[in-house]
Design a protein around this nucleic acid. Structure first.
Lengths: 216, 216
DNA sequence: CGTGACCTTGAAAGCCTTCAACTCGGGTGG
DNA sequence: CCACCCGAGTTGAAGGCTTTCAAGGTCACG
């Protein structure tokens, strides 16, 4: 399944694509490491995060099959990447990618489109982190996961939560307790139905969309 | 001054570059508008923001001379842009840009580099919004402005705050009162010296850097 | 069936917000 | 010329949402 990034451009170079497997919670690379590879997730999920000096953590994104990662500046990764679940990735040497970009200018266009999408997502996340309440954050998160499942052609219901409550909190700027309490209150309000701790059925999705966007 | 984006690529096409001037607080475009142009700030500063349904606002960035803006998806702007101060910009039709990108593949590379830088900044901002305290946010913000002035070759001291307290709050996920109180407390602690309401002298910048990064 | 990791729930505390009043500076018009 | 007004900023006090601290529950695993 290696080659999801740009099949048409890469098929001639499959020999330098390497399949990589990681167990849940295994690190892929750390912020500041020399950025020698870029990756494509083919299976499972990965979290990207940054740390403050005292250990506070902000997860900047979760990556799912089809997603591309390996953002670097000055040849260093700008975030840490860690497997959430067991993961399969496709690895590609950055130097080769650079060579390829020279030869195939269209690749830059493709990468630009990816970067733009990520940038849009990042800005939505800023709005979430800066201005939404805990409930709005949780609802937005659930909807985001649902849309991801839709986009990848997976079943939409139930929404799957492969990550821990701690991870969810570190993604939404909340504590684990607030995440738990908010899910409970949504459940008690009938907005969601939990199936175990990692599957959620969304009820009245249109109403939830309104909550997430703070439509009065 | 039109042409800061990519002088070498664009000098043959200056005829489709248009200088634009805006008064303070004038809107440049709104989220959802058809994205017909891209812009380069040549003078003054601009804020970019997104709104929730009930009016809550998150400023996703401030743009200064040399910065490029006009991010769009599906030909629509994904944020609102508004002049903070009187502003001069260089406007470029997006369709022409697309034509140019066809002819000059290297332009995509340039744009990709810009998008990457913005993405890195966006992730730092997520860490700030999700995990930093009010004091850490304000200190980080002042240092960010200071670095911007350095990068553009302006005087570093004092740091200039062209935007209102409301704007600062909407950028940092705080209220105007918390911004004001935090600046006051930093002043009383001797960490900064205010010169009017819009100029700040940073004392012990190394200590402030530690506060911003939460180095224990 | 004990153990531990993860999750949930309760109670108290705290940081930031909300509400409110006051100050300051600039522009305007009497 | 100066009183007045208005917007922006500051400061105080009370309140609330989320965090912190603490305890208990659940489930997988050895």
């Amino acid at each position: 399944m290696c080659g999801a990034l740009a099949p048409e451009e890469l098929h001639q170079l499959v020999d330098i694509l390497t399949d990589v497997e990681l167990s849940a919670h295994a690190p892929l690379f750390h912020e500041g490491d020399p950025a020698e590879h870029v990756f494509n997730v083919t299976r499972g999920s990965i979290k990207l995060y940054k740390l403050l000096g005292d250990g506070r953590r902000q997860i900047t994104g979760f990556m799912f099959p089809g997603d591309f990662l390996g953002l670097a500046v000055n040849s260093e990764y700008v975030y840490t990447a860690e497997a959430v679940t067991d993961v399969k990735l496709c690895r590609f040497p950055r130097r080769k990618l650079d060579v390829l970009r020279e030869r195939m200018p269209k690749l830059d266009r493709r990468l630009l489109a990816l970067a733009m999408d990520e940038l849009v997502a990042a800005q939505d996340q800023m709005l979430l982190l800066g201005r939404k309440t805990a409930e709005e954050k949780i609802v937005s998160f659930l909807l985001m996961l649902a849309r991801g499942q839709e986009r990848r052609g997976e079943k939409v219901d139930p929404v799957h939560l492969p990550m821990s409550r701690t991870d969810i909190g570190d993604y939404l700027g909340l504590t684990i307790e607030t995440v738990s309490r908010t899910l409970s209150s949504l459940r008690k309000a009938g907005a969601i139905v939990m199936e175990g701790t990692d599957r959620v059925h969304l009820k009245h999705r249109d109403r939830l969309e309104e909550v997430a966007a703070a439509m009065t």
